[in-house]
Design a protein around this nucleic acid. Sequence first.
DNA 1: TTCCGACAGTGGGGTCGCAAT
DNA 2: ATTGCGACCCCACTATCGGAA
Length: 512
Amino acid sequence: MLLTRLADVSREVAATSARSRKIALLAELFRHAEADDVPLVIPYLAGRLPQGRLGVGWKVLGRPVPPAGTPTLTVREVDALLGRLGEVAGPGSQAERVRLVEELMGAATAEEQRFLLGLLTGELRQGALDAVAVEGLAQATGAPATDVRRAVMLAGSLQTVARALLGEGPAALEAFRLTVGRPVLPMLAHSAPTVAEAVGRLGACAVEEKLDGIRVQVHRDGDEVRLYTRTLDDITGRLPEVTGAARRLTGARFVLDGEVIAFDEAGRPRSFQETAGRVGSRVDVAAAAEAVPVAPVFFDVLSVDGRDLLDLPFADRHAELARLTPEPMRVRRTVVSGPDDVEAAEEFSRQTLLRGHEGVMVKALDAPYSAGRRGASWLKVKPVHTLDLVVLAAEWGHGRRTGKLSNLHLGARTAAGGFVMLGKTFKGMTDAMLAWQTERLRELAVDERGHVVTVRPELVVEIAYDGLQRSTRYPAGVTLRFARVLRYREDKRPGEADTVETLLAAHPQVRP
DNA sequence: TTCCGACAGTGGGGTCGCAAT
DNA sequence: ATTGCGACCCCACTATCGGAA
């Protein structure tokens, strides 16, 4: 199949807002793909490369290349070139990447270049990713969409399912069952503002401590243990103490879901930055493990001794987990009967925060494990802090925010009477707020460099954030975690904004 | 007819590893 | 030795579509 066909379909998909039309366009393309092209066409139209990221970003892609006049590139030729691109390593690799990208782009028409650029940067922005591609695949093959979706969640891969489905027909979906050693997309959670509201929504539920670490799925089959992250990256080699802990459990075949986190000598959680740095270390694992040991803490079990537990109620899965793992290896929890019992849930939440954890998860006891879904039966509740800060600058937005001042530079007041930048945010704004702030900030503009518009520090904005963390980037030595806009405070003058001193005083455990 | 679940988009900060400088 | 880039951890929130209620 020619690449130009894919580029055309992608453009059409991007041009329509109707999801049903996007699905129909993808289905039509999938139907006409040859068997050999399927493993390429499907991920390409889902906006991803089959071989994953290639170490190519804006730096390499920045230079424009004169486009070809006529479309001749085939999908398989593109794949061959991208394959070579992924293999490049060592000294001189940057220049070689540039050369390969130029070779690829030089053979592509302008339209094809746009498509390839989107694929290589991971920002195709056609309003269709895996979920829409799954629907298109179902429509193209006549298989029920729910079955295809489930197979993809259990396989952890759209390509694998697509190849089987188009090769063997709907019966192939049967083969995609939970298998020890093959990672499953993990279940995700929604948020709730308070414990009371979460319990009110769910009724009988477990309230569990929410640890601020890295999600991990642990597979053990005899002596073979493998560890996967939330996005199914294999991190087995990085966490020897976790694989060791899994081997010491009494069960021989299981799949566990939990979090890895580093604790200090007193048993309190270390900062997320420390845990993440440890899990990210892969060159000298022994030294990293010595400096920052981590522990697995589990909250769910998906499979035991060949039994698939996904459809069991959470209460029953947890009973299996309690049989399999010792108490210190499980998250602390309490079970409440429903809204009448909300006091107990709130007390547990208070204790959890006092122990230094980030919040609680509230989980319905009767819910199955919804692999790959953001289930309404898991609700996270974290305390929210707020500050009144001053807008120091703003950046022009991209995509649907083109022409709007979007990303705000946030400043806190200093004792000396100036302002110090604490970070940025683009979150929490409605379209109306975007329009309003664009107007207002343009009136206050004093300078524009690149995409950054500096303004007179006069606008006060109320910001919500999850906590403070150390920073080498910002002058106060700290920055806000997950900052988002709540509302503008036109009733407040910049002199009434919060100061760095009050911010630091509110987070005594974080020091610049 | 209204409501609500699922999705995609719009980016945030940190850390590590690697190649270039 | 330092710097810059890319990958991948963590993530909040809004707009929109289309099926459920």
